[in-house]
Design a protein around this nucleic acid. Sequence first.
DNA 1: TTTT
DNA 2: TTTT
Lengths: 131, 131, 131, 131
Amino acid sequence: MSSLNKVCLIGNLGNDPEMRYTVDGVAITNLSIATSEKWKDKDGKKQEKTEWHRIVFYKGLAEVAGEYLKKGAMIYLEGKLRTREWEDKEGIKRFTTEITGNLLKMLDKNPIKHPVDGTALDEDEDPDIPF
Amino acid sequence: MSSLNKVCLIGNLGNDPEMRYTVDGVAITNLSIATSEKWKDKDGKKQEKTEWHRIVFYKGLAEVAGEYLKKGAMIYLEGKLRTREWEDKEGIKRFTTEITGNLLKMLDKNPIKHPVDGTALDEDEDPDIPF
Amino acid sequence: MSSLNKVCLIGNLGNDPEMRYTVDGVAITNLSIATSEKWKDKDGKKQEKTEWHRIVFYKGLAEVAGEYLKKGAMIYLEGKLRTREWEDKEGIKRFTTEITGNLLKMLDKNPIKHPVDGTALDEDEDPDIPF
Amino acid sequence: MSSLNKVCLIGNLGNDPEMRYTVDGVAITNLSIATSEKWKDKDGKKQEKTEWHRIVFYKGLAEVAGEYLKKGAMIYLEGKLRTREWEDKEGIKRFTTEITGNLLKMLDKNPIKHPVDGTALDEDEDPDIPF
DNA sequence: TTTT
DNA sequence: TTTT
């Protein structure tokens, strides 16, 4: 009956966000977030594994993500898992699992670079940045 | 630097768990969990969408999941996202996203049916069931 | 800068919910939820400890909680921690920590008893129950 | 039956951690973490409210928290709620709600200052800092 | 008592 | 493939 589908991530953007608009004018932003795990194996040797997560934001969050995040930024996000079906070039059915984000918090104090015009913006100078 | 990779699900098993052992004797159990979302579309018509999640448990949790869960059971689980690379029959690289479970709680009071021998077991009668 | 204040609970109501309205007509519902922990102590003796959580829902969730939950019901809830200051009879400052709920999911299939009139209602008979 | 008692916080330490040892040699560290919420009220005026959370870490996490955190540090933590009963000077029963932490991640890249001796330590120079 |  |  009731169900829960929740993902919480803290990680860094692997690239600048990619923002676009549907024909209806809905903003969509795609991100890649890296999380990494460190551990020692049986031989005491340090190991590290990085996991990449595909994130999609819609509407208001897409605008915020597209405007204020950039490559390397550290964020906290919550969302839900969604597996999409698509066809590759050979017409073979494929699946991709993404996280549809519904909460976003920026976790570092880096100056913010607008991806569009490349100008740097210090958060302290803009009281309307929604983090 | 620091990162977080966490998934929390509440849902029902689509099938009996599949449990196996590696050559080293490590238990591995695979599950499918359904979560579903209901909403009303623009026309006020009820919509429902089901999402299927692939779960993997290892070691002790794999044993617990393999022995005490069955098709239809409602569970709460926590885990982390992991995308595995594999090759299909044509040798084409494919990706599958799974959740490696690290916490499991059973949420219904159904009598528990052992998948192996089909005997029913009432939880109240067994003080050692680890939920 | 950014912060997160989140609580997730699965537990049972210790009593029927208490619902009231402010003079402005805003619904407020108070609940107590029990969570319990089991473990074995050093002597291998089973121990159990129950924790009680004070929950407050407002507006729509308060109406839902007040109407559809009852003593013993099992729920999943998310909310945030809030510590309120108040004065006891002797005028001494006291603090109470509560969880302001912002998500509620019912986890059992019990017939629902309206606290007001005591009539039982089977969820299957009411397509508008918002779980 | 099954239950869940989980808190997730991102916030800043209000003071240096307070670390001590029980007579059995178990490390215990107490922290205060601030989370804050911003919103606009009906008149469009910006409002902000800070919530303070009492955190307790035990054993290994207590040592880590006591050694590597300091006033102002931003952390992510998970834990569980616990309400303790105690008696005030007048012998009146009081309650305090705390979070027993079971996961800790440091979220800023500040040089780490040991509270004890005031020496600064750059995380990059110490491969054994457990974050 | 933090942080912005 | 679940559940309601």
